[in-house]
Design a binder for these strands. Structure first.
Lengths: 339, 339
DNA sequence: TTGTACGCGTTATCAT
DNA sequence: ATGATAACGCGTACAA
């Protein structure tokens, strides 16, 4: 059996409360007794029972991060893990531990609530997909703070969230392409119902406007999972006399197929056509030519989310905070038209 | 303030212990009181305080998974997350929650031990890199079960670990290539000090022997991060009259560069040269031609590790278990020589 | 089948 | 600056 606070107290000839004070750096304690107590702890190999501490304080000392299984297991995971790592680092600094749980079924949040109700977590990090009116209501009642990782669907929401500035990313992309001498810029978009996609489109339009470029309806291309169909579409588009001379792609897979479709059409990259992608996955730099990418600092994202949550937990109720993180451009060969 | 077991007891006119029995399905309770208690719990919106439960039982009800930051943040993460998801699923089924922590500095495991000593976890999942004599000793003393995720460095170790059968993967790869009519099979290896790499080499040699093929020393190629140098090396190798006609690559990046080096040399894939890779990352299927890959079921790996750990935790001390998981081959165009 | 009483290890309040 | 004492919410012998 491991030793308890009482053992330490007995060994050093003081009361348990004094030992507790030393452990928590609370109140004032004389140098002498403090010394004695530290020695006793050493001798007895004492380690505070964190479960008992949590229990006594009524604080779990833990944060629950929910991962959206359906989403997380796809591409996004490369990023998700960095985000998680960043958060764990912040929590650790604050003496909190990170608990992971998965939302298995859409809209089924009983697992999350279970943990909240059973008081196993002092705060939550949630993926946008799990957030719905019912959950919000429950969390409100339970008075437990949370931060959403990604911009939520609805307009303004009475809670904190963190996301990268997708509009800025698209805007940067357009600026760069124009600077490189491209002028007929197309955008390959995935699911336009997703908030981040809408933001990217908004940034794209904003930049075109800023540069006084015409907006061509057929320059916004809906990506299709039917690869052959998609490549045919690109080929068709390029055959047009008013074809685009640059593509901003929504993700690496779209970029990959676009790249190959463009090459197949006989156009040279980057001399004839520029290609730029959102997200910078490990293999993006290995394409031919390497892809210029809108870089997303997911580490920073996790860090921000974690810090905001820590704030809410300590100064219980510091209002909702929204954090839009800047993107940056990782310029590679695929868009270098001018030396 | 939320209601406690005492409130429920009072409300339903029984003693707290009876309520406790209902919660834990222990002992025998009459249908009638059981009914009453359930109703009371409902009415009072009662949820057991999991912290108090853990405290009373002296069990954390949690498992700690350590992630090797230096490794995890690289490519492997695509897999790591699936493994984590699988584990979380298993733990959840057993009523355990999953706590994540990162090992930040090499050999610095104070964080892990901190959690163990403070009794925040009942078991551990560890990456091979964290395991050293000192930690083993501490864990032994603390009597806390753990499972290592990946075959450890040293020979036989007195603990459980789970890994994929790397030798089998290499063996399968060779078999497939030979079946397709390739006969001069080279292997591109990364760091040969890594256990998994040694196993893959062993499988490769075993298969060559089984097929009575000669082992050429220069057919085992040490991959170099200096891309240009590596490609030159491949070019040089291919210029040789006794050049390989197939490459088994240690990971997707090696495969990518090999692919491009081979193409640059004017050889056709798969007609002239076959290329096969370990690991199947999202973008592996998007190369030209798509890469045949040794598939690793990381979900299964997590599941096994979690189950073994759950076993150790419940039947405290069921001896060490070693689990080598089968690989499978995802055949794509890059090795289809024969229809 | 149910109730009583105590303990789990720590913190917090109130004295001293 | 330190000690005594009472919680915290639950589980569990033991008694009934």
């Amino acid at each position: 059996m491991s030793s308890t606070i009482r053992d330490v107290a007995a060994f050093s000839g003081v009361s348990p409360s004094t030992v507790s004070r030393v452990i928590n750096n609370k109140g004032v304690i004389s140098q002498k007794t403090q010394q004695k107590i530290y020695e006793a702890m050493q001798k007895l190999d004492y380690h505070p029972n964190s479960l008992a501490q949590s229990f006594a304080k009524g604080k779990a000392g833990a944060v629950l991060m929910v991962m959206d299984a359906s989403y997380t297991l796809e591409y996004a995971n490369t990023y998700f893990l960095q985000t998680m790592f960043a958060m764990e680092t912040v929590f650790q600094e604050h003496g909190y531990s990170l608990v992971i749980s998965s939302s298995r079924e859409e809209g089924e949040n009983s697992g999350i609530l279970q943990i909240v109700y059973s008081k196993r977590a002092d705060g939550l990090i949630l993926p946008p997909a799990t957030v719905n009116a019912k959950l919000l209501d429950s969390l409100e009642k339970a008075k437990i703070p949370f931060v959403v990782l990604g911009q939520p669907e609805l307009g303004h929401q009475p809670y904190s969230w963190v996301d990268i500035d997708n509009a800025m990313g698209a805007s940067q992309a357009v600026d760069h392409l124009i600077e490189q001498g491209y002028s007929r810029i197309a955008m390959v978009a995935g699911d336009q119902k997703a908030v981040f996609m809408q933001k990217r489109l908004a940034g794209y339009y904003e930049a075109l406007e800023r540069h006084e470029l015409e907006q061509h309806k057929n320059f916004v291309i809906e990506y299709s999972d039917d690869t052959d169909a998609y490549r045919a579409e690109i080929a068709h588009l390029l055959a047009n006399k008013r074809a685009p001379d640059a593509f901003i792609c929504g993700d690496n897979v779209m970029a990959f197929h676009t790249l190959q479709a463009v090459k197949a059409s006989g156009r040279r990259i980057p001399q004839d056509i520029g290609i730029l992608t959102f997200d910078n996955y490990p293999l993006a730099e290995y394409t031919e030519p390497p892809l210029t990418a809108v870089e997303v600092d997911t580490f920073l994202m996790g860090q921000h989310a974690a810090r905001i949550l820590m704030d809410q937990i300590s100064k219980s109720g510091s209002g909702e905070v929204v954090s839009l993180l800047p993107t940056s451009l990782n310029v590679r060969e695929s868009t270098i038209k001018r030396g």
